[in-house]
């Protein structure tokens, strides 16, 4: 196989047991192997710290030592494939879910998904809320309402967890006491950045199911029917009021 110098360099970066790629030399004649080790270490440390920054609650849940060990394992297979470092770590929650040593903390992956969603929401496109005029126009044609499609704000991410990922996150922002969190309680939340701040908005199960239908592109009529079929306690008024109030809704179309 024909290997490029770049491929050799990349391979050696990933594996500390490999020697430095051939053909390196230092300006002052010092050993390039040592210098390459320094470079390799900096690459790995910086990427681990980027993960720590994005997944800071996960880090606190497992402790620094465990987190760094887990991040190192992740890096072996998942070097960044995009030049924007804020997009590095998209597969980390999935990796955590499959990471055997963390299996005693099954809520860890969803906590990571929430943290990832917050970073993505932070970097999402700016967008204003639905205007009252737009809504009045829609209301003036009530017969078309079942066919109405409501898209969510570009920053919106929905989290539906079997665990108390939202409370776990909140406890680590000092919003609620950690000792009162029952991690086995299913929770849902909408992650949203309507203005400058990323918000984590807890949702009940029915509202989360309804929101998922809207995200899937269902019409309003179909979304309500679908939600009512699985959640008889669904309160459409309250769900719409919450989504409007938090500026989660973005565009109406038919």
């Amino acid at each position: 196989m024909n290997r490029t110098p770049e491929a050799d360099f990349r391979q050696a970066l990933l594996n500390p047991e490999l020697s430095a790629p051939a053909g390196l030399w230092a300006w002052n004649g010092s050993d390039p192997t040592t210098r390459f080790d320094v470079y390799r270490n900096n690459v790995i440390v910086s990427l681990i710290e980027a993960l720590e920054s994005t997944f800071s609650v996960v880090q606190r849940l497992v402790g620094e030592q465990f987190f760094r060990a887990m991040a190192r394992e992740y890096l072996r297979e998942h070097m960044p494939n995009h030049p924007v470092l804020a997009r590095f770590g998209d597969s980390f929650p999935g990796f955590i879910a499959e990471f055997e040593p963390a299996s005693s903390l099954p809520y860890l992956a969803d906590t990571a998904r929430l943290e990832w969603a917050r970073v993505q929401a932070y970097h999402a496109m700016d967008a204003g809320p639905l205007s009252a005029e737009t809504l009045q126009v829609a209301l003036s044609e009530p017969e078309r309402l079942p066919q109405l499609r409501i898209s969510l704000h570009p920053s919106a991410h929905l989290l539906r967890s079997q665990y108390a990922a939202v409370s776990l996150w909140a406890a680590h922002q000092d919003l609620i006491p950690l000792s009162q969190v029952d991690p086995w309680q299913p929770e849902q939340a909408l992650i949203l950045r309507p203005q400058l701040e990323v918000e984590v908005i807890p949702l009940d199960r029915a509202t989360a199911a309804f929101t998922a239908c809207l995200i899937d592109g269902l019409t309003l009529g179909a979304a309500v029917d679908e939600t009512l079929n699985t959640h008889s306690d669904f309160d459409l008024n309250a769900a719409l009021a919450l989504l409007l109030q938090r500026q989660a809704l973005h565009v109406l179309s038919y």
Binding site: L61, F66, M70, A171
Partner: peptide, 16 residues
């Protein structure tokens, strides 16, 4: 230094 070999032993030892 943070990339030394792949032998590690750690347990989740944070706020969980």
């Amino acid at each position: 230094k943070d990339y030394q070999g792949n032998a590690f032993k750690a347990v989740p030892a944070g706020t969980c």
